[in-house]
Design a protein around this nucleic acid. Structure first.
Length: 378
RNA sequence: GGAGGAGUAGCGAAGAGGCCAAACGCAGAUGACUGUAAAUCAUUUCCCACCGGGUUCGGCAGUUCAAAUCUGUCCUCCUCCA
């Protein structure tokens, strides 16, 4: 793996948070970073140009979903994901492991892999660690994931132990199957809130020497303190010279708490999904744009925001678009939320470089009225 | 002028003596959403209230222990015929 490497540039003297650069075949990106999710080879409602303008670096796509539609060969035929969807910056694909969790009612796990019931037509599907890697090789993202089981929370010890051990065997198989030297492969730490299992998972993966390490099995229903503990259990046993990716986390408080614990990468559907549903992250806390109180409100979503939406549109108009179910509204709201998190991570990087991340965190939490019991600041 | 049909909550529309403050859809009001089966899901919408109570089904008058539902009458609308 020549084209991909992680450069840990600075550790905040005040907090221990990390600033780094991820070198990839599609350019260098700075960490900590937030990665918008584009499951079906599109960040819903947003163009690549809009993403660049906001400072987006890496974006995600999904193995399971692209495997079904349009099929990895269609993407490969187009020259890979980047060319297929015209995204010129680095990309990352998830392995399908999250679908083991999100579609748990319609799948069966065995040692060999996972039997899914195709959610589109009901047909049987079988995804294995090797198959997931093969698909991801064809999709051609810069960073790919091991196929894992994302277990639920809560989860009893026996089940979790078996699951973690199986996921480790799958990681080994996937690593062996990985053929494309231009793609970095990450292992995924599991183990729920059991410290010994997180330790087992993290140390075993570290011994396999992956290009980076993901922390999975979080934000699946546990409370925030538990999630932060899971992160600590995992990171404690991960090498510091490799990137750490906290999967599926994207609320602003959790990003800050994650960075504080040594996380470099985050992804989440939250900003785009809640935007489509009318909820916005702002410096005033959460705004539900549907609410009647905004009917005549000519102010921007967030007076402190400089995104395209806030520069040009009023709450009154955004509410109107939302209530009429207009696509342009979903786009404007998505722009705002993505911008909010990209700006947040940019500010975080600056604070780390200047050794004041702890101050930054405290100020942010104070300003937003945030605490663990009131993570949104209301 | 004659014959037939219809008026139910903001709108559409079920209900044809008690289980009806009245299904369902839409619209409205809120909430949720964390590696996207998510333009989804949940709650709520006659009035006042904590239990609970008070007014409703075009109007009025009846029948009945009991009426949105049956009878009479009036009003409004639609269709057809003159």
């Amino acid at each position: 793996m020549e084209k991909f490497y992680f450069e840990l540039k600075h550790v905040c003297k005040q907090s221990g948070a990390r600033y780094g650069i991820l070198h990839t075949p599609h350019g260098d990106v700075e960490t900590p970073m937030f990665m918008p999710v584009g499951t079906l080879a599109t960040v819903k409602y947003l163009s690549p140009e809009e993403l660049y303008e906001m400072g987006s670096q890496v974006i995600l796509a999904n193995t399971y979903h692209l495997w079904l539609r349009p099929g990895e060969d269609v993407v490969s035929n187009a020259g890979g994901l980047h060319k297929f969807m015209n995204y010129k910056k680095p990309m990352l694909t998830d392995s399908g492991g999250f679908q083991v969790f999100s579609m748990s009612k319609t799948r069966k796990i065995d040692e060999e892999g996972v039997h899914f019931k195709n959610h589109l037509d009901g047909s049987p599907l079988f995804l294995t660690p090797e198959k997931s890697i093969e698909i991801q090789n064809k999709l051609g993202a810069d960073i790919i994931m091991s196929f894992d089981e994302c277990p639920p929370y809560p989860c009893d010890y026996k089940y979790m132990k078996d699951s973690v051990e199986r996921t480790l065997r799958w990681a080994e198989r996937g690593k062996k199957a990985h053929q494309n030297p231009n793609q970095a492969l990450f292992g995924i730490v599991q183990g729920g809130d059991y410290e010994d299992l997180r330790k087992l998972s993290a140390t075993s993966l570290a011994n396999m020497d992956f290009d980076g390490y993901s922390i999975g099995g979080t934000s699946v229903g546990e409370d925030k303190e538990t999630m932060y503990r899971m992160i600590e259990y995992a990171i404690k046993y991960l090498p510091s010279d490799k990137p750490r990716y906290l999967m599926g986390v994207g609320s602003y408080d959790s990003i800050i708490e994650g960075v504080l614990r040594g996380v470099d990468m985050f992804d989440c559907v939250l900003p785009t999904r809640i935007a489509r549903h009318g909820a916005l992250m702002t410096s005033q806390g959460r705004v539900n744009i549907r609410d009647k109180k905004y009917e005549y409100d000519l102010s921007p979503l967030d007076p402190k925001c400089n995104c395209y939406t806030c520069r040009n549109y009023t709450k009154s108009y955004l509410r109107h678009l939302y209530k009429c179910d207009e696509g342009f509204g979903k786009r404007l709201l998505s722009i705002h939320n993505i911008n909010f998190l990209l700006k947040l991570t940019k500010d975080i990087r600056e604070a780390i470089k200047e050794d004041r991340f702890l101050d930054f965190k405290n100020e942010f939490f104070e300003k937003y009225g945030l605490n663990v019991k009131n993570p949104r600041g209301f």
